[in-house]
Nucleic acid binder design. Structure first.
Lengths: 210, 210
DNA sequence: AACAACATACCGACTGGTCGGTATCTTACA
DNA sequence: TGTAAGATACCGACCAGTCGGTATGTTGTT
């Protein structure tokens, strides 16, 4: 029935997400959001019963899309090869591609943003964030453990720590990328992680011609 | 002059740093800081002419101590060995030790906190943050480049990207550590970085007995 | 007397949130 | 088909409280 573009609710979410990542939650007033979206106060409170509920909605939305991205990427990698080690390397490669296509630095991670403005990080929000991170760790670590059975790594690895590295590198890479206003840093860091895993498992690396 | 403990100014800085890292800058009101420190409004504005000036002071203080920590660590490593590769590995080892001693998750990085609550990140603040990050990159990359002359790495590395990795891993490690409320994660991640560089340069790694 | 180091009372702008109302669309039933 | 009933989306004036900041003291030391 809606004829014109995204719904009011979606416009609020989109704008607020952007503003909160830039300014922080507390520093982003409703009036600012209202002005930027052209939505009135009444309309806002029709869709969200409080500012905190907006934060919660924003959060759920973010977690959902992040989970989806990881899931899709893993499945793509699994279709491309049956070798678990290659699946990990391809997953990292796909992320690298994704981040390499950015023309501006990645705006940042909502989880980190909330963590640095805590006390609005409720126990449920915290638990969901942990789950999201834990999935990445578990999925990657599991594949590497299987890979190690047929292809022993050069040194005994801490699989869980390596599983965490994708999260760590993405989080740290976003901050560094933002700081230097250089969109390429994030992809470069992912490439290092891939290189680490290749070295660990003795995979032949192509020396880039460039 | 001052007979009892830290000065009022120092108490404000210390408390505010802690609160801002936890709640964010905008969410930390002067009244809250005043209540927590027992300092009155008059006293506060005697020492800082505005809340923004407090932020600036906090920031300078943070950058200065961070620079000092890196500098001291690098010098310690340089005294312990003359081999540049070993200097890098020892530097990482010292950081690992430092973070491994934490009993609670590292409270976070003020630069990241400010980056996620931008618009209070002035051009000067931004420039100083970049410089701080750039020092780490430059110092580590330089040592690795020298090391590569006598000990060729297994694959052609992106030295600058590897130089950035310490920053990236620390930033990401802090977030992950805080999220899981696990102080050990940060040190584990530094260990992975060390392992990467060891593999890259073909350094013999001791398999931990544990 | 002069100045640093505080204390107290107060200010206006802005905050998140409420509330009474309207316009438009969907559904139910005669 | 017409119409009454109700839901949904939206409007904007208003409110009480909080915010950073100021003005004007008081105290203690040199």
């Amino acid at each position: 029935m809606a004829k014109e573009g995204p719904s009011t609710r979606e416009r609020i979410l989109e704008t607020a997400h952007d503003m909160i990542l830039r300014q922080g939650y507390a520093a982003t007033s409703l009036d600012q959001i209202l002005e930027r979206t052209g939505v009135t106060k009444g309309a806002f409170f029709h869709h969200f019963k409080s500012k905190d509920e907006l934060a919660r909605a924003l959060f759920e939305r973010y977690i959902a899309t992040e989970n989806q991205v990881l899931d899709m990427t893993l499945r793509r990698a699994e279709k491309l090869t049956s070798d678990p080690l290659q699946q990990v390397l391809i997953t990292l490669g796909l992320f690298e591609e994704l981040f390499d296509a950015l023309e501006a630095p990645h705006p940042g991670c909502l989880i980190a943003s909330f963590l640095y403005q805590n006390e609005l990080m409720t126990p449920e929000t915290l638990a969901k964030s942990r789950d999201a991170f834990a999935v990445w760790r578990r999925e990657l670590a599991a594949k590497l453990r299987i890979a190690a059975k047929t292809r022993p790594p050069r040194v005994a690895p801490d699989y869980d720590a390596i599983g965490d590295m994708l999260n760590v590198v993405v989080e740290g890479g976003m901050v560094t990328s933002k700081l230097f206003d250089d969109p390429k840093i994030l992809a470069q860091q992912i490439r290092q992680l891939r290189s680490y895993i290749e070295l660990l498992f003795g995979v032949e690396q192509r020396t880039p011609a460039q």
